[in-house]
Nucleic acid binder design. Structure first.
Lengths: 346, 346
DNA sequence: GTCCGGAATGAAAGCGCTTTCATGCAGACT
DNA sequence: AGTCTGCATGAAAGCGCTTTCATTCCGGAC
């Protein structure tokens, strides 16, 4: 009357082979490369496998074949809709080819990123998806030494050396700033993500600066760096408004939607009208950005597509096919209700 | 002038052993069970390993030792803040013990859940974290056959047979309904998650029904099931309001915060004042619930804690220690601004 | 001085699979 | 007929590590 939970270590391939009346090698081939065996033997093996409830032993397979059929993804955090949907897309794309996703997050801590990447490599991942192009030297070393293909995402590599799928954060950010400039804004403030060790945040900030500089403007003294989250966005705006230079701006460019949403909430609380008193822009276009009223003007990034492409490219490379070093995904300015011309006078 | 990327298959344990001038077995022990070798040999081995940049081969280790030091988590979706933070917590707890998290999501599709769970089992996970207690028979079979310890989360198992860490969704949901009843509400509507194959959604709905029934009330005709997401919540409320019985309610109980937030947004668009015209409650207490104005009245679930505990329990069990079958995490009613007594007359 | 027990080490046997390599056996070709 | 080709199969050698099991080498008890 023992529970089924007591059952131990199920059938091995050798058992399947014996049951089917074929050799170990034939059984292996029948399951892995059906083209290599006769149809009837394949059927025999398959039936035997089904009857015994055979489950291949991943580690043994990995050891013998030198590929684990797993891909690792190393994310800053999974607690951000854009990474969540990219993850979903990667997993789906991989599953279709019999690969499994191994996920790791480092919470924006560079050292942790190296550690978790090493852990994945040790686990024998066949490929890696990383976010951004800016990483510790040790990370690059580890990846290179392991010799596994790697895709850098959400960015483009200016040196053209690494494989990446993404877009120019700088251009995109300049584009959104340009939109505000065209509306007539001249006094800008910026809520940026932490730029240290984060090329996306850095590039976005640079994009704003460039766009402003082209008009002889700047946002000096009205730039604050903070963690990418709703709560931090809110706190950051609060801090900004308490600065001497505070309040003296009509447009607030945010490093991502979370920050922008936080800023909107703070404005609502303070009675600052958006967009009448202050125009706000985001970056990413998460679901919430469209649902809120007013809708957030932001830059749409096809995050699922980024994940899907990265996974697909990895699979291609693992199959021995070449892919272009760089793959751009289209981003698009989405103008909604949080941006408008500045009030005539303040 | 070949890039470092060309370097192939690094040092093996045998190389380390040779370099250190010890046998393979000693090298293995020095790295895995330092207590079994003399201090100076341990140091020699460690030095050799460091010098050669030795990285253990996970698959080989797993094959020989029959444990992979990986834990699998199977989630409905990673695109929900509560699962995201639980995941973060699990990974962190595991990492501290040298374990790695293997993540899989099934997007609320029962068949996909079985498939991804099988994939994880095949990958040789040492343990499993599942969400909810309601799963396909095949899933239970696969898990039992594999004989790996498994923790069911976000729920309690009424049969007391499975290991779980969570809380009673039914009681919690009844509690929040009770709050509305005490405010004087008598006409209820419900936005529920899909109940098929989802015991959490089912229990929450049952909790509302029970609390209402205890007062001789019901919400019949004003219950709609939909997918747990902001957009769907919004659409669901819209649909509800178009029903014949529509609008004839003063309180809306939602299956989770995403649904509630969607409903709030729809209300704002339609000019339905919250809480004056309609009281709304959520479930989970995601970050956004507190930041919005008015703040969402909801039930706080310590999602990080759920993940952390599940991981900790798994590690305990893997170490051969016993843990209580069931572990409850505390949930708490958080009253914010979306609930108030119903308007005197409508 | 002999003997014993325990600690440290080494030798070797796998873990369950993939993958050469060799073999047998049709059918094709001369 | 005889040889060659190619396909389906089998035998066996690992993949890189852990883990018995056996061995050696001590110090201490007698």
């Amino acid at each position: 009357m023992l529970g089924a939970a007591m059952r131990k270590s199920s059938a091995r391939l050798a058992d399947v082979a014996r049951t089917a009346g074929v050799s170990l090698s034939t059984a292996s081939r029948a399951l892995a490369e059906p083209g290599l065996v006769r149809e009837d033997t394949r059927a025999k093996v398959e039936k035997a496998a089904a009857r015994l409830g055979y489950v291949p032993h991943g580690a043994a397979r990995a050891l013998a074949s030198r590929r684990s059929r797993t891909i690792g993804a190393v994310l800053p955090t999974v607690d951000n809709p854009i990474f969540a949907s990219a993850t979903q897309a990667i997993a789906q794309e991989l599953a279709a080819s019999g690969y499994t996703l191994l996920l790791a997050a480092y919470d924006y801590a560079p050292d942790a990123e190296v550690a978790v990447t090493r852990a994945l490599l040790e686990r024998g991942v066949d490929g890696l998806v990383l976010v951004g192009a800016d990483h510790q030297r040790e990370l690059f070393q580890a990846v290179d030494q392991a010799g596994v293909p790697c895709e850098f995402t959400w960015t483009l590599d200016s040196s053209g050396y690494r494989h990446c799928v993404g877009f120019s954060n700088r251009l995109a950010s300049a584009q959104i700033t340009q939109h505000l400039l065209e509306l007539g804004h001249r006094k800008f403030a910026v809520l940026s993500g932490h730029t240290a060790g984060n090329d996306r945040a850095r590039e976005r900030l640079a994009g704003v600066r460039e766009a402003l500089a082209a008009r002889g403007l700047d946002a000096d003294g009205r730039i604050v760096e903070t963690t990418f989250s709703l709560g931090h966005g809110r706190a950051a705006l609060r801090e900004l408004l308490e600065r001497p230079a505070g309040r003296d701006f009509t447009a607030l460019v945010c490093g991502n939607d979370l920050l922008a949403l936080g800023a909107m909430l703070e404005c609502r609380e303070r009675g600052i009208r958006v967009p009448e008193d202050l125009s706000i822009t985001g970056f990413d276009d998460i679901e919430l950005a469209a649902e809120l009223a007013p809708g957030l003007t932001t830059l749409h990034v096809p995050s699922g597509e980024v994940g899907r492409r990265a996974a697909a490219r990895l699979l291609e490379r693992l199959a021995g096919r070449k892919v272009a070093r760089e793959e751009q995904v289209p981003v698009e300015l989405i103008v909604r209700g949080t941006t408008a011309p500045p009030a005539k006078k303040r």
